[in-house]
C-alpha cells in the first residue's frame, strides 16, 4: 500500500508539473501561437465572467460584448492622443471594470422585470445600441475608423508590449478570475444564484430580493468584461466598433454552452475549442466558415450538455487532488 501511495502522489505531481511546464513553454512558441493562446485566455476571462450571468444566475445575456467595448474604449480614450490623456494601465484597468459594472447596472435595471427570452433580446438590443452609438459618436470615438496609436502599456514599470508580456498578464488574470468565481460559486451568493436559476418565485418567497441578486450578477460579470476590454485595447493598441459586433457576444455565449454551462472547466475547454477551431481551419480557405458551422451543429447534437460533463468541474478536481494527496488510500 505504501508503494501505491507514493506512485499516486508521484503521478499527481507529474500531472501538475506537466501543466506548469506547458504553461511555461508557451512564451517560447512562435509569436503566432502565443497570440492564439492570448486570445484563448481573453475569451476564458470573458466567458467566465458571462458565465456568472448565464450559467449561475440563469439569465441569458446576448449583449455581453458591450461591456468589453466599454472597457476597450476606456483605454482608448484615457491612454491615447485622442484627448491627449495618458493614464497608467493599471488605473484604467480599474476604471474600465468600474465603467463596465456601471453599464451592467444600467442594463440591469430595465431588464429585471423581464423573464427568459425577453431578457435575451433586450440585452442584445443594448449591445447593438452601444455599438451603433460608438460607431456614430464621431467626436468622441472617431466613429467607424476607430482610434489608433494607443499608448504602450506598462505595469509596475514592466513593459506590456509583446504577446508574451500579455500572456503572463492574461494568465495571472485568468487564474485570478477563475479562482474568484469559483470562490463565489461556493459562497452563499453562488447558491442563491443557482436557486434563482431553478425557481425565481420560490427564491423571492425565501425573502431574497431577486432584483438585487440579478443586478449583482450583471454588475460583476460586466466588470470582468470591462477589465477584459481594457486589456484588449492595450494589446491591440487600436479599437474600432467592428470588434464588438453581435457575433462576438454570440461567440462568448457559444463558448459557455459548448463547454458546459455553469462549469469553469467547461468554459476553458469551450474557449480552447472555439478559438483554435477557426485557426486550424485556415487551410480550408473559403470553406472555413461552412466547416466551422457544421462542426458546431454536429458537436451540439452529439453532446447537447456540453463537451465537459457537469460533474467534472473545478470542485471535483480540487477534491480529487486533495484526497489523493492527504489520504490516497480512500480513492
Amino acid at each position: 500500500m505504501g508503494n501505491s501511495v507514493i506512485v499516486r502522489r508521484l503521478g499527481l505531481l507529474a500531472v501538475l508539473a506537466l501543466c506548469v511546464v506547458l504553461l511555461a513553454l508557451v512564451p517560447h512558441l512562435p509569436s503566432y501561437y502565443v497570440r492564439v493562446v492570448d486570445s484563448i485566455l481573453i475569451y476564458i476571462i470573458l466567458a467566465v465572467g458571462l458565465n456568472l450571468v448565464v450559467g449561475y444566475a440563469g439569465l441569458l445575456d446576448l449583449g455581453f460584448i458591450a461591456f468589453y467595448a466599454v472597457g476597450a474604449y476606456a483605454y482608448a480614450l484615457l491612454a491615447s492622443g485622442q484627448f491627449d490623456i495618458h493614464l497608467p494601465f493599471i488605473v484604467i484597468l480599474f476604471i474600465g471594470a468600474a465603467a463596465g459594472a456601471i453599464a451592467g447596472v444600467l442594463l440591469g435595471f430595465p431588464v429585471l422585470k423581464l423573464r427568459g427570452d425577453y431578457l435575451a433580446i433586450v440585452t442584445l438590443s443594448f449591445g447593438e445600441i452601444i455599438r451603433i452609438a460608438i460607431n456614430n459618436a464621431d467626436d468622441l470615438t472617431n466613429g467607424p475608423q476607430g482610434i489608433a496609436g494607443l499608448d504602450r502599456a506598462s505595469l509596475f514599470g514592466l513593459p506590456l508590449t509583446t504577446p508574451v508580456h500579455f500572456y503572463w498578464l492574461l494568465l495571472v488574470l485568468a487564474i485570478t478570475v477563475c479562482g474568484g468565481v469559483y470562490y463565489m460559486e461556493r459562497s452563499i451568493l453562488g447558491k442563491a444564484w443557482r436557486a434563482l436559476r431553478e425557481d425565481q418565485d420560490v427564491v423571492r418567497g425565501l425573502g431574497i430580493n431577486t432584483t438585487t441578486l440579478k443586478l449583482l450578477a450583471f454588475a460583476l460579470s460586466a466588470a470582468i468584461g470591462g477589465a477584459g476590454g481594457v486589456i484588449f485595447g492595450a494589446f491591440q493598441r487600436f479599437v474600432s466598433p467592428e470588434s464588438f459586433t453581435f457575433q462576438e457576444s454570440l461567440l462568448v455565449v457559444l463558448i459557455i454552452i459548448i463547454g458546459g454551462v455553469g462549469n469553469i472547466v467547461g468554459v476553458i475547454a469551450g474557449a480552447v475549442v472555439l478559438v483554435v477551431l477557426p485557426e486550424v481551419l485556415h487551410f480550408a480557405a473559403q470553406y472555413r466558415l461552412l466547416i466551422y458551422g457544421v462542426v458546431l451543429v454536429t458537436v451540439i447534437v452529439l453532446r447537447p450538455g456540453g463537451l465537459v460533463s457537469p460533474r467534472f468541474n473545478l470542485g471535483f478536481i480540487i477534491r480529487k487532488v486533495r484526497t489523493l494527496w492527504l489520504s490516497p488510500s480512500k480513492t
Binding site: I188, L189, K191, A192, R194, A195, E198, D199, V202, V203, L206, G207, I208, N209
Partner: peptide, 17 residues
C-alpha cells in the same frame, strides 16, 4: 431546488436580506 443538495436548499434561506 432540485439541482442543489438538501443542505444547500436550507442554506439558501440564510442569504443576507
Amino acid at each position: 431546488f432540485d439541482g442543489m443538495t438538501v443542505l444547500e436548499n436550507l442554506e439558501v434561506c440564510f442569504f443576507p436580506q
